[in-house]
Amino acid sequence: MAKLRCGFFKFTGCAGCQMEILRLEEEFPRLLELIDIAYWPMVTTRGWEGDLDVAFVEGSVSTPRELREIKEIRERSKVVVALGECALTGCIPSIRNFMLQREAEKRVYDHPLWIESIAVRGLDVYIEVDIHLPGCPPHRNTILEVIKGAALGRDPYLRRHSVCIECKLKDNGCLLTDEGRPCMGPLINAGCGAICPSLNRVCEGCYGPMSATNASSHAQILKEIGLSEADIRRKFRKYAGWTPDFRREAE
């Protein structure tokens, strides 16, 4: 089997998704039997040459330069993987979209005039994405599944159901129905293994909306257990406020 020529790119984000790939320490030697690292600034100084079988793109598009680059990546890659929540939904950086662009720039930079930025958007807005790998960061097993799927020539097996399913498969008690705590699990894409609820913390929603969310119903449930409207807005805004699924509740 020919190895997959892979490139790893970082846009607006924290580099945590790439770190998650590097954390596949045990699997790495064997992973390198499946892939060639053609471009990955975090691990090699090699420049980007030639076309790619798979491009992993971390981060959202928030500058004109990134916008140009994502289009080039699309043209030069057979498969584009949106790696992690920023690339999917804009994630935490997309909170910026809820205020005026200039105001956001002014808050951060001494000389906002030097800044060239546009609204924070997922890759989908600008290019056709082949594989959406959710998570902040994506779970190592799902990253491996994407690579294995690409090597086998099939779509990765990534389920789009709620975190609740994973929670129940682990026989966790329910933070929402047993304890009345504001868990986002019923709306959020699984893949993490219900890591937060398993550690007695409510799901904050870092894997973004699952496939068939009912955000307005969940907003009513959160209100019923005592959250203020501002809190509910923040819950929806935190990771995926700019998505069609959550935007109404986030605004």
Partner: peptide
């Protein structure tokens, strides 16, 4: 909410999903 909790906790819901999970060697 389509969260699926009802099926998972139901003592008689038996429907299941099947998937192949290759290891890293494929």
């Amino acid at each position: 909410l389509s969260c699926g909790n009802c099926s998972l906790v139901c003592p008689t819901c038996y429907c299941y999903e099947v998937a192949d999970i290759p290891d890293i060697t494929l």
